[in-house]
Structures are given as C-alpha cells and as structure tokens.
Design a protein around this nucleic acid. Structure first.
Lengths: 144, 144
DNA sequence: TTGCTTGCAAAGGATTTGCAACATG
DNA sequence: CATGTTGCAAATCCTTTGCAAGCAA
C-alpha cells in the first residue's frame, strides 16, 4: 500500500495533477478493499469518513487510478463497473457464481497461451482479453 | 429462416402470446442481419419499413427472441446490448479488433475443455462463459 | 370479449459533464 | 496566481415501465 501511494504520487506530479485530501481518502479506501468495488460502493464507504464528498469525485478518481495503473476495471456484465487492484496483481480471469454472486480469481497458463494462438490464427495480435466463467459454486449446489 | 419463424410461431402459441405485424417485421429484420445488432440499430432499420413502430417494441421483442432461443445477448463491454442469432448457431467466443471494431467468431475445443476443468478445480459447475479477445487485426496493424 | 401488445412519454440506473467556488503547487 | 479539483445538479446514454388505446385469438 505504501508502494501504491508512492506510484500514485509520482503519477500525479508527472502529470501535473494535484494531491487533494479527497483523492487520498478515496485511494486509501480503495486500497484497503480486497474485493472488487463499484463506484457506488466505494462512495458509500468514503462518505462515512467525509460526508461532504461528491459522487462524481469518486467516479473521476477511480478512472484516474486506472490510468495510473493502480486499478483495473472489471465488467461482470450487470451494468455496473467495478474496480480491482491492478498493481502487483496480474491479469486473471473470473469465476462467478450465478447463485450467490461470489467471484473467484483464476489463471490458467495453458488457456492463456491457447488464446494467443487462436488470435494469431485469425491474424490478430492480442492485446488483452476478458474471460468470465459462470456457474454454481459448491455451497450453492448443496442448497438446491 | 423459415425454420426460425416456425419455432417462433410455436413459441408464441405455446406461451399464449400473439403474432403481430410488428413482431414479424422485427423478427424478419433481425434474421436477415448477419452481424450483431443493438436494439438501437435494429430500430433504425425497422423504422424505415414501418415509421410508426416504437423503440420499446424493439427492445421488448429482442428480449422475447432470446427467450424463444432465437437470439443471444452479446456484451462487448461498451454499454450497449447486442444480439446475435442463436438458432443453429452454437456458442463461440469473440475476437474484437481495438482498431476498427471488427469482430470474428472463434471456437477452440481445447480452451472450452480447459475452462471446465479450471472451474471444477474450484468446486464450480460451469453453466456458461464469455470470452472476449481484444487485439488488432491484420489490416489495422498494417495501417500503423 | 379477454388480455396480450403497442406507442408514447416518463422513469430508471449508472455515469458524465458544465459550472462556479475552491484549493494546490 | 494559474490551473487542477471539487460538489452539485443537470444532462446523457441505454433500457425499462406505466398507461390508455388497439388488436389478435
């Protein structure tokens, strides 16, 4: 977390951006969260510490964190943008439970490699990808 | 296309739904399109043949086609829902060019199988998945 | 006739933006 | 003090919904 703040600080000065208390608060709150957060969720948390903060500020800063390489947008397909840590938190795919909404992060080197090959077969040079695996987790299957 | 219409007709009567000219027009237009269409796009096309048609009708019917198994929603992550044919048009993944937006449908049996295994490893029973491969197609790479 | 459908406009939810006041470098 | 930043509200974008009128079965 210290490291992330440093990176962010450098990013700010390098881009002539300013270090504001709101910015700090939002970043801190974001970094403390382990799970994916939506702007709305983050706003709710942040508001408790600083009720005067505006929703737009949260949206704007979340976007900024992405640009600075600290956050990554995750689209679970429900129309709400979520963000996850991206610093020292390499690419991975998501396993999502249709029952309880739980998400698990997974990676499979073979799948990654095969994707690259499939893309090449069609003349594409892959830049990135998103894989969402939907299913039912163990607990949810037991309940049924 | 004849087949699809038949299926749809049966779906309608089985569900006590009605066969209206708007419905027919929207379905016909949808079936003729080979590419993914958004509700908006379909609406624009349909409007040319029947200017009195309402946007909501297109949205409602597209949803209906999905329920009837004729269409499938595709989320390319740009906030617009698109639909593609699903009858006799099995699951596939999408290769999307960041440059020109072109999409190519791909399938790789090995990737599919591996996905299932990864899910199982985490106790999930896979129901479906979405894989989007982003990159740059040959033509776009040449332009740069 | 019954009740599914339609078109319209209003409502919704998520996110963005214009703007004037404000604060940082 | 120049310019980035904020909070607010209004505006957008896409999609859904309420409703009265219309139409299929």
């Amino acid at each position: 977390m210290r490291e992330e703040r440093e990176i962010f600080g450098k990013y700010l000065s390098r881009h002539n951006l300013r270090d504001t208390p709101q910015r700090e608060l939002i970043l801190d709150t974001f970094l403390k969260r382990e799970e994916h957060v939506s702007a709305e969720e983050l706003y709710d948390i942040v508001k408790k510490r600083d009720p005067s903060i505006g929703q737009a500020t949260v949206y704007r800063n979340l976007k900024l964190f992405s640009e600075a390489g600290l956050a990554r947008e995750v689209d679970l397909g429900d129309g709400v943008a979520r963000y996850e840590h991206s610093y020292k938190h390499p690419h991975h795919d998501h396993l999502i439970c249709r029952g309880c909404g739980k998400t698990v992060e997974v990676v499979d080197a073979v799948i990654e490699e095969l994707q690259k090959r499939v893309a090449e077969k069609y003349g594409f040079k892959l830049t990135d990808h998103a894989l969402y695996l939907y299913g039912n987790c163990e607990e949810c299957r037991k309940k049924e």
